[in-house]
């Protein structure tokens, strides 16, 4: 009698995990990724003759699909279809986004801030719909080929529709998770605000400007009540930083204030300097 080795067992397990798409309009192409709540596959939609992303939900019912489908926003991948596979697992089909993960090393500061603001817009929208993502992290952000910014994996999102986990159950990713969420407390929008602060820090691994550092620190305050009240407030502070206005999270020194003002009014300063040079030149010309 011979035993199966680990490699063969792993292969058999991965094959067994593959979704049974018999009787559906989809053909499996490949696995795209795997998360805590299920796996995402790239499939071919025979009816529409295009690729799509099919997520097989390991746990729970079709609520994840309903929650994601209820969020209609440019920053959330739209859900087109859903149901139960012949093997009994829930699935839903989304638009296939051929994009890349966020790479802060190869992105200019202003572009990183633009991306971050789009992320904030999407999260603010979700909060308005009473949905808390609870697992915001760089891996869950996809940049589309046309510069679109998507937040994906709403599998652990908390919404009025979703089932409550047993008290003390922790969902999320440690590096980006709010302390109260890590302690198993009920997540509030403040938990997502904490994660956004952690993402902001992650996006600027070196040379984080003092106002941005203060914004990230305020978003990541240990006490949720010390954080920004809403994602929109956080986003407004980022907007202020972008246009070189003082941010609410940072008390700047007189020198910082002067440098910021000069940076904001560089054109005016150049014009004034040109005026003075001309005046001096004209004044001294008459002595020649």
């Amino acid at each position: 009698m011979s035993y199966l080795n680990d490699r063969v067992l792993a292969h058999l397990k991965s094959v067994a995990d593959l979704p049974d798409l018999t009787g559906t309009r989809y053909e499996l192409i490949r696995e795209a990724g795997r998360g805590g709540m299920g796996a995402v596959y790239v499939v071919f939609d025979r009816e529409l003759q295009r690729e799509a992303a099919l997520k097989v939900v390991d746990r729970g019912s079709g609520i994840e699909a309903q929650v994601t489908a209820s969020l209609e926003h440019p920053g959330i991948v739209p859900v087109h279809d859903g149901g139960i596979l012949p093997d009994g697992r829930n699935f839903y089909v989304m638009r296939y986004v051929d994009g890349a993960s966020l790479d802060p090393q190869n992105t200019a500061e202003i572009d990183r801030l633009r991306i971050f603001q789009k992320i904030c817009d999407t999260v603010a929208y979700a909060h308005n719909q009473q949905v808390i993502h609870r697992d915001l992290k760089p891996e869950n952000i996809i940049i589309g080929n046309f510069g679109e910014v998507f937040i994906v994996d709403w599998g652990v999102a908390l919404s009025p529709k979703s089932q409550q986990e047993p008290r003390g159950m922790v969902v999320g990713t440690p590096m980006f998770m709010a302390p109260e969420q890590g302690a198993g407390q009920q997540a509030t929008p403040a938990a997502d605000i904490y994660s956004l602060g952690a993402i902001l820090k992650w996006m600027f691994p070196t040379n984080l400007a003092a106002p941005l550092q203060s914004i990230a620190s305020k978003a990541m305050a240990t006490n949720p009540s010390d954080r920004y009240a809403t994602v929109a407030d956080l986003n407004r502070d980022i907007s202020r930083y972008v246009v070189r206005e003082p941010v609410t999270a940072h008390r700047e020194t007189a020198l910082e204030s002067t440098i910021r003002w000069a940076g904001r009014n560089r054109t005016l300063l150049l014009l004034m300097a040109a005026y003075l040079i001309v005046k001096f030149a004209v004044y001294f010309l008459r002595f020649l």
Binding site: T267, L271, M272, Y275, V278, V282, L285
Partner: peptide, 21 residues
Amino acid sequence: WLQIMLPGFITGGIIGFLTQR
């Protein structure tokens, strides 16, 4: 010419800038 036109040119530019801001 120079004493009036050059500063007038730049002052106009500054006014144009300020109206935008």
